[in-house]
């Protein structure tokens, strides 16, 4: 079982959380202009990365807030936990800019004032050991 450090509640068992799939998938900015291929990409196509993967989780039986996680899909090691709307903090320190303003805005609203105080850059070093699988 994963031990997940909720930014608001601390370390809790995976059973308290709900998985939300790939992070940083923005709602199309101009939905009326999308063709079928582009809609298919948005609706059905998600990255299926083998390795470091940015994904969303919801602490559904705790604070009920969404947050992002960078997790290795082979070792299941949790490398970073960071707020919705924040750019992806890569394990190597490389950041991927969050594309799509619509998605960022929605994320910020969902997280609200309960957004974690820890910054994206410092969190990878503080939470990594706790994120290991049991």
């Amino acid at each position: 079982m994963l031990l997940i450090s909720c930014p608001n509640c601390g370390s809790r068992d995976e059973t308290e959380f709900h998985y939300g799939g790939q992070a940083h998938v923005a709602y199309p900015e101009n939905p009326n202009e999308l063709n079928d291929r582009e809609w298919a990409e948005f609706l059905f196509y998600r990255d299926n990365t083998k390795g470091a993967f940015a994904e969303r989780w919801l602490h559904s039986t705790g604070c009920r807030q969404w947050f992002n996680m960078l997790r290795d899909t082979v070792t299941y090691e949790i490398q970073a936990i960071y707020p919705m709307g924040a750019p992806r903090p890569d394990a190597a320190g490389r950041t991927t800019p969050d594309t799509g303003t619509a998605s960022t805005a929605a994320d910020s609203t969902t997280t609200g004032s309960a957004a974690p105080s820890t910054s994206a850059t410092s969190i990878s070093s503080t939470t990594a050991p706790e994120g290991a699988t049991k």
């Binding site: 079982m1 994963l2 068992d13 995976e14 059973t15 709900h18 998985y19 799939g21 299926n48 990365t49 083998k50 993967f53 994904e55 997790r71 899909t73 082979v74 070792t75 299941y76 699988t133 049991k134």
Partner: peptide, 13 residues
């Protein structure tokens, strides 16, 4: 298991 994984193992719950 709910999460994406290539590890050929899952969570005990």
């Amino acid at each position: 298991d709910s999460y994406n994984g290539y590890g050929q193992r899952g969570s005990f719950h």
